[in-house]
Amino acid sequence: MGLLTHERYCDEIIRLTEELRAALRGADLGATVPTCPDWTLRELAEHVGRAHRWAGEIVRTRSAEMVPDDKVPDNAPADDDPATLDAWLADGAAGAVAALREAGPDAEVWTWAWEQSTGFWARRMALETVVHLADAALTADVPYTVTPELAADTIDEWLQIVVFVQAHGDREAAELRGEERSLHLHATDVPDAEWLIEIGADGVTWRRAHAKADVAVRGSLTDLMLVLNRRLAPGSDRVEVLGDAALLDFWLARTAFG
């Protein structure tokens, strides 16, 4: 498992948004999202729709700099009607995907990260939707599933983000350095889905590997992804934590950016 194709990411943006829309239908849009307590379910949905439109506008215009929110067309639903929100979400995903497909993966555009390409935005928007779909499903009390490829890629990308923001001065991530310590993620339902995260004097490094670590987390691949993204508590009976549980808590507390 590794990076998916550009077309697959585009397909997933559409499919995952359809699942998000399905989770919202009939749900209390004023309910607080437990995993994002500053947001209601409606605000979570609007965040996803705005993210799709923002990335789509960057790609569509081949922008070499960040596009301000007020320059993004149709950046909010027209009214509070759930049907309007549903159509707005669908249109945002479709517009972003149309721009991404027209551009292909290799056009140079602004991003906030390590790669200045349209392919970055296809992956980022797909995986953004993976995580926020989990938020919505939890709030609406509906089932949540994700393919192994997407779950593994979400873990990979999140670890890339941690390394990137640490290198660029994030104060919380800066504390993930010093004494050598390690964390191991071990999926129990997917072969070879394992990660070794190492903290050392120079900061965080990671690789796909089976190795002994100071703390290990075992569970389904989806649940490992949810723990790493702070969507499932490490004390849940869905995962097993072996070794230095305080180190896992330390990691999660210092990777809460974004």
Score class of each variant (00 low, 15 high):
Ala22Ile: 02
Ala23Gly: 05
Arg25Glu: 09
Gly26Trp: 05
Asp28Pro: 04
Asp28Ala: 13
Leu29Glu: 08
Gly30Ser: 14
Val33Cys: 04
Val33Asp: 02
Thr35Ser: 15
Thr35Ala: 10
Cys36Gly: 02
Thr40Glu: 06
Leu41Phe: 03
Leu41Arg: 06
Arg42Thr: 07
Glu43Pro: 01
Glu43Arg: 15
Glu43Ser: 13
Ala45Phe: 01
Ala45Ser: 05
Glu46Ala: 05
Glu46Tyr: 02
His47Ser: 06
His47Ile: 06
Val48Thr: 12
Gly49Thr: 08
Arg50Glu: 09
His52Gln: 13
Ala55Ile: 07
Glu57Ile: 01
Ile58Arg: 04
Ile58Leu: 11
Val59Cys: 10
Arg60Glu: 13
Ala64Tyr: 02
Val67Tyr: 05
Val67Ala: 04
Asp69Gln: 11
Lys71Asp: 12
Asn75Lys: 00
Ala76Glu: 14
Ala76Trp: 07
Pro82Arg: 09
Ala83Lys: 15
Leu85Trp: 11
Ala87Asp: 12
Leu89Asp: 08
Ala90Glu: 15
Asp91Pro: 00
Asp91Tyr: 00
Asp91Leu: 01
Asp91Ile: 00
Asp91Asn: 10
Ala94Phe: 00
Ala94Cys: 02
Ala98Val: 10
Ala99Asn: 07
Glu102Tyr: 04
Ala103His: 13
Ala103Cys: 12
Pro105Leu: 14
Ala107Asp: 12
Ala107Thr: 14
Ala113Asp: 11
Trp114Ser: 10
Glu115Pro: 00
Gln116Ala: 14
Gly119Pro: 03
Gly119Lys: 13
Ala122Lys: 10
Ala122Glu: 05
Met125Trp: 01
Thr129Gln: 03
Thr129Gly: 00
His132Thr: 09
Leu133Asp: 01
Ala134Val: 08
